[in-house]
């Protein structure tokens, strides 16, 4: 590989504020070699990294539908247009996974926009379907319980510090491991576990307080309500609540607007 190419790559990395001492120089050299069309570099890339790309695609979607994304990425790599975005700040395999994850998520979100979002009525209608299995909770009370807990949970989550919300999102919504969650937050997994337990406890206390004050429930009703919703959360989606920067009313309105737009179209 020409030294000039590698020097240019190092300069590009430095321009992006990368600490040269922390660069993954071997991977950067490999990327430079592949971008320069060197056969040996390509052989190494195909042997070491191409399988990683396709295994990652299969892990993202076991049905195989993400393989076309991997094909697309590999095609762009082969055309050497994608390698210039790799600056050696991470390992090449992690970068490939990130590119694939980004395209996969964007495709999922684009597909989700085309599907009508359920409104509150349809959400509430999901609840009573399983009525009778919620212990002593009367069937008629079930929609009210769900609505109250949803409102209380949303308020409690919104009041959490961003770090606690990120921890909840990583561990519960995105199902990362404790070690991965801890690494992203810069804390040990045991510390992460303790923080999660503390956050759960705080959420529970906030919800009960909200049910007591806003729902005007007695302690027995609170216990019944929490037990009912815990047994089957129904339409409650923690992932949605965690990202509810905007109030529910606004989200409902925007969902309705999108539905109207689709109807007009």
């Amino acid at each position: 590989m020409p030294r000039e190419r590698f020097a240019e790559a190092l300069e590009r990395s430095a321009e992006r504020g990368a600490d040269v001492r922390a660069l993954h120089l071997e991977d950067l050299a490999l990327a430079c070699g592949c971008a320069a069309g060197e056969e040996a570099a390509w052989e190494h890339f195909i042997r070491e990294h191409r399988p990683t790309l396709y295994r990652a695609a299969d892990a993202l979607d076991p049905s195989g539908s993400a393989r076309d994304l991997a094909d697309g990425i590999y095609g762009e790599l082969f055309e050497r247009s994608l390698f210039r975005y790799f600056h050696g700040r991470s390992s090449l395999s992690t970068w490939l996974r990130a590119v694939l994850a980004q395209r996969h998520v964007d495709r999922l979100r684009a597909g989700r926009r085309l599907e009508p979002l359920p409104d509150d009525e349809s959400r509430a209608a999901v609840g009573p379907a399983g009525a009778g299995t919620y212990g002593a909770a009367p069937e008629a009370e079930r929609p009210r319980y769900v609505a109250l807990v949803r409102s209380a949970l949303q308020g409690a989550v919104a009041n959490l510090p961003p770090r606690d919300r990120l921890r909840l999102a990583c561990y519960y919504a995105q199902e990362l491991t404790l070690a991965e969650t801890g690494r992203l937050l810069g804390e040990h997994e045991a510390t992460c576990s303790r923080h999660l337990a503390r956050t759960r406890k705080a959420l529970r206390a906030d919800i009960e307080r909200a049910l007591r004050t806003e729902g005007r429930m007695t302690e027995a009703e609170i216990a019944q309500c929490v037990a009912s919703v815990t047994e089957d959360a129904g339409p409650l989606d923690l992932r949605e609540l965690l990202n509810a920067d905007e109030p529910v009313a606004v989200r409902k309105k925007s969902a309705a607007d999108r539905s109207r737009l689709r109807e007009r179209a």
Partner: peptide, 20 residues
């Protein structure tokens, strides 16, 4: 902490951990 898309990215990265 407040971005749905970026949290989904984390989840996707987590699901591909086994291939590393």
């Amino acid at each position: 902490a407040g971005c749905d898309r970026c949290q989904m990215l984390l989840g996707a990265m987590g699901r591909t951990r086994a291939v590393v």
